[in-house]
């Protein structure tokens, strides 16, 4: 189903934020919308957005390519993005990420076998005083998880797993 058929109300609201002659401004919010379900923007969605905003598909793709929170490939349902930038690293973020990798048995950039979590290392998330920390990017948007330990992270993943199972049942 096309994006505008699926989310008519949301799209109308988003477009209302910007002057009608500059509706192109809505490309970023529309991309979040397109990414909501699958975690990435597929070709059809790019075409839909291009049509809605009267720009070319290439222009839409060029936005997807520029910003690091848009993805054009499928990954885990949740992207677990650990900040390893300088301030967090000064507070043990690198070790935290390493330990997490060991615990999950995957490398940075890889996805857990069940397809639930992709582990990523990212730049500063404006939570430098609460390291180690990460954000999860998933169907319900982006959430911060601060003052983390490996144990608390594993608990979180278990909770996600459980929710996933219940959701399926």
């Amino acid at each position: 189903m096309s994006l505008d058929k699926k989310y008519p109300k949301e799209i109308k609201q988003l477009l209302a934020k910007y002057p009608p002659e500059h509706k192109r401004s809505a490309v970023m919010p529309l991309l979040y919308l397109a990414q909501r379900e699958e975690g990435y923007v597929n070709k059809e969605a790019m075409q839909d957005i291009a049509r809605i905003l009267d720009i070319t598909e290439t222009e839409v793709a060029s936005i997807v390519g520029f910003y690091s929170l848009y993805h054009d490939k499928k990954a885990g349902k949740y992207r677990m993005q650990v900040c390893t930038d300088l301030p967090c690293a000064l507070r043990g973020a690198d070790e935290f990420l390493n330990n997490l990798c060991e615990n999950l048995g995957i490398k940075v950039g890889e996805t857990t076998e069940d397809g639930l979590v992709t582990l990523e290392s990212v730049m500063c998330l404006a939570a430098c005083d609460r390291a180690p920390m990460f954000q999860t990017q998933g169907p319900d948007g982006i959430k911060y998880h601060e003052y983390m330990t490996v144990d608390r992270t594993m608990e979180l993943i278990d909770a996600l797993k459980k929710a996933e199972k219940e959701g399926k049942e």
């Binding site: 790019m46 720009i55 070319t56 598909e57 290439t58 222009e59 793709a61 060029s62 390519g65 520029f66």
Partner: peptide
Amino acid sequence: GEAVLGFDERGRNTQIVSLS
């Protein structure tokens, strides 16, 4: 007036693409 070329990615990875 036909924006069928664009840049993908950014920084040193910036590359020309066309999706038309």
